[in-house]
Design a binder for these strands. Structure first.
Length: 434
RNA sequence: GCCCGGGUGGUGUAGUGGCCCAUCAUACGACCCUGUCACGGUCGUGACGCGGGUUCAAAUCCCGCCUCGGGCGCCA
């Protein structure tokens, strides 16, 4: 395997061994071609039947599509070949035969439904446009990490198996932990606050979150990747600055380092890095603007949560990313701080893409007694959260942060129709394998 | 959690009571073809999610189940 040459690196005039998948076989009678595909691209293998060893021809043309083969031969310049070069084989080795009846068509001639594709992800990923999504995903995560580090945040990982939920009311997946009741964590919220309160000060985490809601939509997953940030001595405005920087960094990375993948996805022309300076609308302005669009049958009043239809109307109206700030305290979680001058108003904010919500964040309640009172107001037992609240008694700085939906970021950035396209092996209401 | 819409060869589809022992494409098998690049041509194999019911007659209508997708709620 050490002597293997990538198809893209095969130079005319030398002998080379290329290995990969049989993309297509075109048998024209006296001459036949195999298109061999690997991670770097494709190359054509030529079989001139009269001039070549019968066994070699039989082996080469006897393989089924998507079989893995290795071909050794002379690489020659050939203007009639798709890439300008082709290989005349001296030997062909079938490394792994593929069943001739494939569950989906990696050459993309026939579409497959998402469900069929997810059942056969390995074959699905052989399509360049599917692979491009995950190459870009990898690049986005790299860029996001780098941006957090530039902002002096330390990457952390927190437990996914927990004794209690974050917000109490949300549906959690129960599990058994050595005979004790436990849950899959829905958010690193409480843990990242505990670390922001140490003198690490600024932390970020990119990791899985689990939500047991039985929703069935193209923008929800039951296991998602959360991109979390928490910073000591930050207020909600600082957290919004960070959220915006991170989102812009993701777009910049895709634009700068994934030109080929964007081209493959047909996005090269239209892809735009959003301008800095996402507008910040207060909740009150947001409902006024939604009401002014006339899209909703019933006018929103102060205190209502924004319905999906309203979010869409506002998204169309704004036409780009925007923040909604100063939400009513009542519809934000207990750990979000209220404004000093008006305790009906919270410091909570959301970052919206015109299609959906991407981020939720705010300044946190760092005063012990107010925090405990918040638990009680929410109908939660503060004793269960003592591991958390007690650390607010030993010097907890003001802090703020947010959670950004990783798949939603990728989905909106690439204009994907379904969030499942942004995960290799999505977990949703009906899917538990593969 | 509530609501809506689907399930037809390996894959993607057409077919809304008799014209259907089911359309088309692709895949698969056989044969022909020396420059294909979605190669082309001829022939062939292959399917109505499961169970019950209505009807002279069901892929088609009804009921239950299974399964997939979507809308809302909620959220990232």
């Amino acid at each position: 395997m050490q002597d293997r040459t990538y198809t893209a690196d095969a130079e005319p005039g030398e002998s080379a061994t290329v290995a990969g998948w049989v993309h297509e076989i075109r048998d024209l009678g006296g001459i036949a071609f195999i298109i061999l595909r690997d991670v770097s691209g494709k190359i054509q293998i030529k079989f001139e039947k009269d001039e070549m060893d019968d066994d070699l021809v039989e082996t080469g043309l006897g393989v089924s599509r998507e079989s893995v083969i290795s071909v050794t031969g002379d690489v020659e310049e050939e203007p009639r070949a798709p890439t300008g070069v082709e290989v005349t084989p001296e030997s062909v080795e079938v490394i792994s035969d593929a069943d001739p009846e494939l569950p989906l068509d990696p050459s993309g001639k026939v579409d497959a439904e998402l469900s069929t594709r997810l059942d056969n992800r390995t074959l699905d990923l052989r399509k360049p446009e599917v692979q491009a999504v995950f190459t870009i995903r990898s690049e986005i995560l790299r860029a996001v990490r780098e941006r957090f580090r530039d902002l002096r945040a330390t990457e952390i990982t927190t437990p996914k198996i927990v004794a209690t939920g974050t917000e109490g009311g949300t549906e959690l997946f129960p599990i058994t932990y050595f005979g004790e009741e436990a849950f899959m964590n829905q958010s690193p919220q409480l843990f990242k606050q505990l670390i922001a309160g140490s003198n690490v000060e600024r932390v970020f985490e990119i990791g899985p979150i689990f939500r047991a809601e039985e929703h069935n939509t193209p923008r929800h997953l039951n296991e998602a990747t959360s991109i979390d940030f928490e910073g000591a001595f930050c207020d909600q405005s600082d957290a919004m600055d960070v959220a915006e920087e991170v989102v812009v960094a993701a777009y910049e990375a895709a634009a700068e380092n994934c030109a080929d993948e964007l081209e493959t996805l047909g996005l090269a022309e239209e892809f735009e890095v959003p301008n800095d300076g996402f507008p910040r609308l207060s909740y009150e302005e947001a409902i006024e603007r939604i009401n002014a669009t006339g899209e909703l049958d019933e006018q929103l009043v102060w205190g209502d949560d924004l319905p999906t239809e309203g979010e869409k109307a506002l998204g169309d109206d704004v036409g780009g990313h925007y923040f909604i700030t100063d939400w009513p305290s009542e519809i934000k979680p207990f750990y979000i701080m209220d404004h000093d001058e008006d305790e009906q108003l919270s410091t909570g904010f959301d970052l919206m893409h015109p299609r959906m919500e991407l981020v939720s964040g705010g300044q946190r309640e760092h005063r012990h007694d107010e925090l405990v009172a918040g638990f009680e107001q929410q109908g939660l037992d503060p004793d269960q959260f003592e591991y958390y609240t007690k650390m607010f008694k030993y010097g907890m700085p003001p802090h703020a942060g947010f959670g950004l939906g990783g798949e939603r970021l990728i989905m909106t950035l690439l204009g994907l129709d379904n969030i499942r396209e942004a995960v290799l092996f999505p977990r949703d209401r009906q899917r538990l394998s593969p």
